[in-house]
Design a protein around this nucleic acid. Structure first.
Lengths: 131, 131
DNA sequence: TCGAACCCTCACATTGATGTGAAGGTCAAG
DNA sequence: CTTGACCTTCACATCAATGTGAGGGTTCGA
């Protein structure tokens, strides 16, 4: 498919699809006329990228971890250098911390909302967190 | 305490502490001489801000949700306009999706790492290229 | 009294993720 | 053949989060 269709199917602006390519996150084929040609599988891939981006990971990290997330059974390791493994470990850790922080704060907000809309009992206490 | 001490205790550069203030996330007092004077509680507060920032929330959102996360017991609801509640609901939703996405990808990475190390070297293509 | 170590404001630079528009090629349908 | 809807590249604009440094005041100990 061409960029327009991929854009529509994923909800990602064309501009960003080109940007992700520029960042090395996806590498569509080219038709004779120079148009980008996207494989079906890139629909999922692009959405995964968006998810990670939304989750706060920078493209350069995403680029590194994407190869490990290929498919359910299709895991092929791209020659993991120890350096890369370290990066992954590190990022794994960051992600966990990020998740914890987000979860704690989300829970606090949820609690707050619950209290505010008379849902719960009287005065509540939504304790939360930090890094 | 002054900005230097807060910076040291939180690990946040002075520059950012001033930036957070500029963004309305914190509002330290001022001494006679114009120096910023930070309350003890701001140590936690600042770390909470960092956590949220790291988690991908922009300052303008953080500014909105911070009042709901004040302290242990000290929760005072600031006249929740329906508009604000909507924002919170929305952000709550985003956070949940973000968490899910992060968790999925983190698990995938964790699984990958687990396979790569120790466990049997069977699947995949192990190329040995060198740069 | 001097210097070191703080603090201030101002303001420009940078990076990452985007928006937007110009100038132009391709292609199917009227 | 022309028009409109695609596509291309290029390049400048923007926004948030930071870095960095200039120019200058304050405080404190030697």
């Amino acid at each position: 498919m061409r960029i327009g269709e991929l854009s529509e199917r994923t909800g990602i602006p064309r501009r960003l699809l080109r940007y992700y390519e520029e960042q090395g996150l996806i590498t569509p084929e080219r038709c004779e006329n120079g148009y980008r040609s996207y494989d079906e599988r890139l629909v999922d891939r692009v959405q995964q990228i968006r998810g990670l981006l939304d989750a706060g990971l920078p493209t350069r990290i995403i680029k590194q971890i994407l190869p490990c997330l290929d498919g359910p059974g299709t895991i092929h390791f791209p020659d993991p250098t120890p350096e890369m493994l370290t990066t992954l470990e590190l990022e794994l850790d960051r992600m966990t911390r990020r998740i914890d922080c987000l979860a704690r704060n989300r829970d606090a907000i949820a609690a707050y909302l619950e209290v505010v809309r008379g849902d719960g009992p009287s005065v509540g206490d939504a304790r939360s967190v930090e890094a």
